[in-house]
Computed example of a mutant assay.
Amino acid sequence: MAQNLGALGEKVTNLVEKVTLLETKLENTEKEVLELRSLNAGNVTNVAFSAALRESGSGNIGPFTTNTPLQYKKVFSNLDNGYNPSTGIFTAKVKGMYFFRFSMFNNLNAVPNSVVSLMKNGVRLTSVWDTSGSDANDMGSNAVVIALEPGDSVYVELLHNRVVYDDAMNYNTFSGFLLFTM
């Protein structure tokens, strides 16, 4: 019987050691989960905005003597507040691949005509243009998918001596969203 008690005591000791080891592993796992949650909370993955030029009224915007970022004042959405309607500039907070689209409307104007460009950090990516002609108005749009780093800026620029027209129909828009982080 003393031999059985010794074997039983050894088994209990082994079980206590295993339970202690499992408790330590569980505590470490809980710490890792909390750390991952805090890291993930700092990642902004819901980034999207869409805006139109005018909040109200109608008429031409421009011409200006220098190339000028357009300020899209009527904000439809601005998740993460990356878009600033006071400047017309979107500033990335997250490294990732982004989609941007912009449109331009021209309402039968004699020269100057319309030329707008999508800019990244002051560098032209793509443009839309129209010249005055016999038709009443013209519209165009363009889009890109680009990689951005935190702090990169994207905006639509109206070239000097050019105009765009907008009214309550919101012809001129600027939109973008994060496709995925990198």
Rank of each mutant, 00 (worst) to 15 (best):
L34H: 06
K93N: 11
L15E: 14
L118Y: 04
L118A: 07
F102D: 05
M182W: 03
F99D: 02
L36K: 03
P85S: 08
E27Q: 15
L34S: 10
D167R: 02
T66C: 02
P85A: 10
I146W: 01
S86I: 03
V123A: 12
Q3N: 07
E55P: 03
L79A: 13
A48N: 09
S58E: 15
P150Q: 01
G62T: 06
R162F: 00
F90V: 08
N14L: 12
V111Q: 12
S117M: 10
N43W: 05
S77D: 05
S117L: 05
E23G: 05
F174S: 00
V116H: 03
T66V: 14
V75P: 01
I146L: 13
E17H: 08
A51S: 12
E27D: 12
V116M: 03
P85K: 15
H160M: 10
E35I: 01
T91V: 10
S103D: 05
L70A: 02
V12E: 07
F64Q: 12
V44S: 10
G59V: 09
V12C: 07
L159P: 00
L8Q: 13
N170T: 07
S132D: 07
S132F: 05
T66F: 14
A7S: 14
F76I: 11
F174N: 00
F177P: 00
E10C: 06
A51F: 09
L118V: 04
V154S: 04
L36I: 01
D166G: 10
V163F: 07
T87A: 04
V116Y: 02
L179S: 02
Y165C: 07
L148K: 05
V115I: 11
L53I: 13
Y165I: 07
G151P: 06
L22D: 08
A92D: 06
